[in-house]
Design a binder for these strands. Structure first.
Lengths: 219, 219
DNA sequence: GTCTATATGCGGATAGAC
DNA sequence: GTCTATCCGCATATAGAC
């Protein structure tokens, strides 16, 4: 069946790319794991890069939509009191982990997500970023309210830190599990992550010494 | 000159791998950029993988030594009062940025570092982690003191979050600069990062509801 | 839609002259 | 130590039979 082939390719690609990374995963690997013919990838997707785009779109779009949906919900509920920092952060961080728990702790997807954030080349980052842009902007606006002491010169950076701790955790969480005795579930980790991010975002602003001098060096 | 060739290869490899990633960077790319012969990489380093190891070692060892040195210093100074959270976090986060500023804001190295943390395959992670292990352990012990409310089940995770925000920032910081009006220097970013990490590490522990129920959803 | 066979090029590595 | 020439395998992609 045709659509079955497409799905099997997407699943296998997601798995393998999450495992080994995009450049190190060959179409031979993918088609073998999916138990389909080598040529079918090009037939169904056009190219290896287009396959990657399809793999990402299948997961990222629902996640970003879910983020916006959750944000809408809490903002509606909160009325003009404004949503709490905790709720906003949770709305941002939980969707990737939600998808996760639906599958019974298949960590591959989290690692793929982690890789997406950091592995791709510069052009691809632009594409990814442009899709992410809307989400980023809306959460920036939402966060501004419970964090009035932050400005345009530090709120975006702190959001970047939050995304970084999330992405890194998705990518390394599995290795981490093995090192610790750790019976932590992804849900436990998510809760820790939310606590960490809330506190980090709300941290007092470091006293600006307004650039005493470019810390320079000869050579 | 021989040693000059080695250095040129290391420099070019660092640059290109930071740019495009390890698997996507060919030895032909490297030797062309370094203006040396293709065969010289194998002559001097043995293999492409060994070259990567050399590239990393050249930078990581000084950074990790510097981290431990700074930790020693602040612990000596602080006596039995114990070092402050801020000083410990700073000792951990600043060395990569220090190396950086010595070179006059060549972001390549920071991006390479970011990639190391996220791009490599599982075997390589093990190697990297084993070198990092000592540093991680010593800082975990040091952090335990100003953070007595944390335990073995959450301190390591929070340290992972800290490393994640750092790695991600190193990897994406450059793109970030471009997006914002941002006249932020790496030093500004470092200060923001330290503030974020301190607060995140010190965050109150989320009330353990001992797994009320998997946050569920129907599809 | 699926498959085989193949085109075409790039990858890491090395033999051997200088 | 450096270079050329080359081995050899794997990569993506596609032509064309079924």
């Amino acid at each position: 069946m045709a659509s079955d082939t497409k799905r099997r390719i997407l699943d296998a690609a997601e798995q393998l790319i999450g495992d080994k990374g995009f450049p190190s995963t060959s179409m031979r690997d993918i088609t073998k794991a999916a138990n389909v013919n080598l040529a079918s990838v090009n037939y169904h997707f056009g190219s290896k890069e287009a396959l990657l785009a399809a793999v990402l779109a299948r997961r990222l779009q629902p996640i970003n939509e879910r983020r916006l949906q959750l944000l809408d919900e809490i903002e509606t509920q909160a009325d003009d009191r404004g949503a709490t920092l905790y709720d906003i952060v949770r709305a941002f961080l939980s969707p990737p982990f939600e998808q996760q728990t639906q599958w019974g702790y298949n960590e591959t997807f989290l690692r793929l997500l982690g890789r997406i954030h950091s592995e791709t080349n510069e052009e691809f980052r632009q594409v990814f970023m442009s899709e992410f842009e809307l989400v980023f902007q809306r959460f920036a606006v939402a966060l501004q309210r419970p964090l009035p002491h932050l400005t345009n010169s530090n709120l975006p950076w702190r959001m970047l830190f939050m995304v970084g701790s999330m992405a890194f955790t998705m990518s390394w969480g599995q290795s981490m599990m093995l090192r610790e005795d750790s019976s932590a579930t992804p849900d436990d980790v998510l809760n820790e992550l939310i606590a960490f991010a809330c506190a980090g975002l709300a941290a007092p602003v470091h006293q600006e010494i307004s650039h005493p001098q470019q810390l320079q060096e000869t050579q």
